[in-house]
């Protein structure tokens, strides 16, 4: 199972093993990671699961995968950065084992 490390906006890290095929958002909810709200539940409709993919993982996971995701990223509460993603749209595979994402100060 790929391991994902979530780094809060104050710098605390929490890691979780997440099933292949689940999203980075789902992994946060299942493991009690604070800082991901995900109020719509992965429907590209709320922009409250915003995260910043660590620069080391930018090539693998740092680019939005749809126009809907790009549109919703314009509605985030915290500033977007070049590797901003909606964590519901990052689906885990073995290639992403070790992924690090940083969480914004606020989701709304």
């Amino acid at each position: 199972m790929p391991k994902v490390t979530y780094v809060s906006h104050t710098g605390e890290s929490q890691s979780a093993d997440i099933e292949n095929g689940d999203s980075v958002m789902r992994g946060a909810l299942d493991n009690g990671v604070e800082g991901i709200v995900a109020e719509c539940g992965g429907g590209l409709a709320c922009a409250t699961c915003h995260c910043y993919v660590d620069d080391a993982w930018a090539d693998q996971a740092g680019t939005p995968t749809s126009q809907d995701e790009r549109d919703m990223l314009e509605m985030t509460a915290s500033d977007t950065r070049p590797t901003s993603r909606l964590s519901c749209q990052i689906e885990l595979t073995d290639d992403l084992d070790g992924l690090v994402v940083h969480l914004p100060e606020a989701q709304y």
Binding site: V37, E39, L44, A45, T48, D68, D71, M75
Partner: peptide, 20 residues
């Protein structure tokens, strides 16, 4: 239209679970 948050299913933690 540019995609925005619509309120058909509300928002917040109690956002409609049947929305999808």
């Amino acid at each position: 239209r540019p995609k925005k948050i619509i309120l058909a299913f509300t928002v917040g933690v109690h956002s409609c679970m049947g929305a999808h």
